[in-house]
């Protein structure tokens, strides 16, 4: 065995198939996308090289800036729900509260449902005429709060963020729970002998021990909410009048609706840079001493 894996060539043979697939479906499209972002093209007529013009236009494009802001709100919302809240749930289940296994399944369930189905379900919940939310508000005597939720430009985005929070809280809970279960129980035994309270144990043992996982989780959360697409496409299509547009839906709109593929590629590049930036950032924030593990 040792001789097989010691040989660089045989390693290459094993890695190659996966790498080829990765190159075709990821690396090449990314490269081509960057190349296209310097052109003004609808992919039919001759394309014209415009240099950085697409990026200059983006900086002036009010709708793009709006979508960037919306993305930032999405990131903030997701971070709140998927870090502290998910950690709270994970810790509760980790501490084996009554019905832990049941709650674990219930919380995780929404994240296995396909985004389109979740979007449609919540569209019905938010519906102005027969929606569950309005019916609930009516039942508790808050008729004056009833409205067409997804058509209100000030509320629509928050309505969507709540769904994103709900959908993925269980997913991140499971990741963090797995990390917690990986901690050696002797630490806790020693801590309780020393008389540490539950909170002290959490802050001094659990948190530092799951930090490396939190780093990966933060990257997943931030990149996930930067490139979020399906739920918004289903629930509002970026409307009303671009109020819930995020970068990915605006990219789609510019490309497939009005055929400005070069411009749309430039949005894609900005998205890529932001995702890459978020990886660097979370590495900085969750700087860990690897010897701890």
């Amino acid at each position: 065995m040792k001789s097989v894996f010691g040989n660089k060539k045989s390693i290459a043979v094993f890695v190659l198939p996966a790498f080829i697939v990765y190159a075709i479906f990821c690396l090449f499209p990314i490269g081509y996308n960057i190349y296209m972002s310097f052109f003004d093209t609808n992919l039919m007529e001759k394309s014209t090289f415009v240099g950085l013009n697409n990026y200059i236009q983006l900086a002036k494009d009010a709708t793009f800036i709006k979508s960037l802001k919306n993305n930032i709100l999405m990131v903030i919302g997701s971070l709140i729900a998927h870090m502290p809240l998910a950690m709270f749930f994970a810790n509760a289940i980790f501490k084996k509260i009554k019905g832990a296994a049941f709650f674990q399944t219930v919380f995780f369930l929404p994240s296995v449902i396909c985004g389109v189905a979740v979007g449609l379900t919540w569209t019905f919940i938010y519906n102005g005429n027969y929606g569950l939310l309005n019916a609930f508000l009516g039942a508790i005597g808050l008729e004056n709060l009833q409205q067409v939720w997804l058509s209100n430009k000030n509320l629509a985005l928050f309505c969507i963020i709540i769904v994103v929070m709900w959908q993925f809280v269980g997913y991140h809970m499971i990741i963090q729970l797995a990390a917690m279960r990986n901690i050696d129980s002797s630490y806790y035994e020693a801590a309780s002998i020393d008389g540490a309270t539950g909170w002290q144990q959490f802050v001094n043992i659990t948190l530092p021990m799951i930090k490396p996982i939190l780093k990966i989780d933060a990257v997943l959360i931030i990149t996930g909410s930067l490139k979020y697409f399906d739920l918004i496409a289903v629930m509002t299509g970026g409307g009303p009048n671009h109020a819930t547009e995020v970068m990915s839906t605006y990219m789609y709109y510019q490309g497939f609706n009005i055929l400005k593929y070069g411009y749309s590629s430039a949005i894609g590049v900005v998205l890529l840079l932001l995702c890459a930036g978020s990886v660097v950032l979370s590495n900085k924030v969750f700087k860990t001493d690897d010897t701890q593990m």
Partner: peptide
């Protein structure tokens, strides 16, 4: 064993992220 399970889980998660992440250019 737990460590291995965790590693497997994270690999799956990242693998899924990879798949969904490249859905842009169909």
């Amino acid at each position: 064993k737990k460590k291995r399970a965790l590693a497997l889980l994270l690999t799956t998660v990242m693998g899924l992220g990879l798949l969904t992440g490249c859905g842009g250019s169909g």
